[in-house]
Design a binder for these strands. Structure first.
Length: 221
DNA sequence: GACCAGGCACATC
DNA sequence: GATGTGCATGGT
């Protein structure tokens, strides 16, 4: 069992934790809400997702069986603030259908599944890609799988940790190779990266004051 | 008004 | 297989 993780990614983690403190993710309440949020936040600001989740709660619809019974046409207006409501209502229903039909809408029923198998099943659902699947596995089911998002990719690229042609799986592999296999660490680091990204890692970088500035080298921003 | 957000599937070449 | 495009609301 390795314990000697002393590398750039661990340094990032320490610096970010020092700067921003624990992020206490996932924001929200319970595994099913995490699953819903994971779909709704696709390419979408979290503040908008919260509005959509509030709509679901106010309508007393935030449970697997109820969403499974709603038509896509009924679900779409409830999640409208999160954007792409026609697409996301379909995606959310696909995920919930799988969860209800195959696992009785119960997180406990997923416990017997090996993580690799679980990930395969999630990825087989139309509308669930690698980031959504990994978010569900890490934040809803609390299993150690690293979540790569746009910010992670940008940050690792700008710090020369990965190649520009690295895809999702390769980037994830880089992270997992350089970190201990630890749910709490994966949880916190991904959340910290998002926290950093929101302020300092836009497509057109405005990096002044970035806590990772001193690690910059070799890539022109 | 332009830019951006915690992606993904699908069409087209 | 890689590249481009549609999907949509709301904040800065």
């Amino acid at each position: 069992m390795r314990t000697d993780y002393d590398n750039k990614l661990m340094s990032f983690y320490k610096v970010l934790l020092e700067r921003f403190g624990p992020q206490d993710w996932w924001p929200g309440d319970g595994p099913f809400e995490v699953m819903v949020g994971a779909v709704l936040t696709q390419n979408t600001n979290w503040a908008n997702v919260e509005k959509a989740i509030k709509n679901l709660k106010d309508a007393d619809m935030l449970c697997p069986e109820k969403i499974d019974r709603l038509s896509q046409q009924e679900l779409a207006p409830l999640i409208r603030p999160a954007g792409y409501s026609n697409i996301k209502s379909r995606r959310l229903k696909n995920l919930v259908r799988w969860f209800c039909r195959d696992y009785d809408g119960s997180v406990d029923e997923l416990a017997g599944l090996a993580t690799d198998r679980l990930r395969e099943e999630l990825l087989s659902i139309n509308g669930v890609g690698p980031e959504t699947a990994d978010s569900i596995i890490l934040y809803a089911l609390e299993r150690p799988t690293f979540v790569v998002d746009t910010y992670t990719y940008r940050i690792l690229l700008r710090h020369s940790c990965i190649d520009p042609e690295s895809d999702y799986e390769q980037t994830k592999e880089y992270c997992q190779m350089n970190l201990p296999d630890d749910v709490v660490l994966y949880n916190e680091l991904h959340a910290l990266i998002v926290r950093l990204g929101k302020n300092y890692c836009r497509p057109k970088p405005r990096c002044s004051g970035c806590p990772l500035e001193r690690f910059e080298h070799s890539i022109e921003l």
